[in-house]
């Protein structure tokens, strides 16, 4: 017997469907069913944040979300951060300018967690940024430049809604 789910959700502004096991991880659905391999698997147990995505406006670990709970959801992955024409988002540009990426494995999760922080609109103090990315581990230990990148992006005007491929998450925290 094989349990199956006809999954339909919105990923980076587009409706996507797939037939998957109901306990399939959102991480595997994104990577294998939809070919969105920007989202990485690190620990696979919710400790490292490499698979961070924004689900219905909130940051989650895609390795801990079963497909059954993503039915009808609105998801933004790292692929949804840039503008539709491929121009890097202010946060991605800041990572490039500040040296926010080293080996790169944590970078998609850092970008998504950083974007969710920026979407909340809280002042980008050191403490606030570090709390926002506390669930994202960088084994190169390049945290200082990642924090610099998020703070630089916070000081950059955001593109108007609709220009980013992904869907903006609501509200403060």
């Amino acid at each position: 017997m094989s349990a199956t789910l006809e999954l339909s959700l919105t990923v980076n502004g587009e409706t996507r469907t797939a037939t998957v096991a109901p306990l399939a991880r959102l991480l595997d659905v994104l990577r294998e069913a939809f070919g969105l391999t920007g989202t990485k698997e690190g620990c696979g147990e919710g400790e490292c944040g490499a698979c961070s995505v924004i689900l219905d406006g909130e940051l989650v670990n895609a390795c801990l979300v079963p497909a059954s709970q993503a039915q009808g959801a609105v998801v933004t992955t790292v692929e949804g951060l840039a503008a539709r024409d491929g121009t890097p988002s202010p946060l991605q540009q800041a990572f490039l300018e500040c040296g926010g990426a080293q080996c790169g494995i944590c970078t998609p999760g850092m970008l998504v967690a950083g974007q969710r922080f920026l979407d909340g609109g809280a002042p980008a103090t050191d403490a606030a940024v570090r709390e926002a990315i506390a669930g994202n581990l960088c084994r190169c230990t390049g945290y200082a430049k990642i924090v610099d990148s998020i703070q630089r992006a916070a000081a950059t005007p955001s593109p108007p809604p609709g220009e980013r491929a992904g869907v903006r998450g609501p509200g403060d925290r």
Partner: peptide, 9 residues
């Protein structure tokens, strides 16, 4: 209890 992604779920 955990970071944001855990607190959200």
């Amino acid at each position: 209890v955990g970071a944001w992604a855990i607190q959200n779920r």
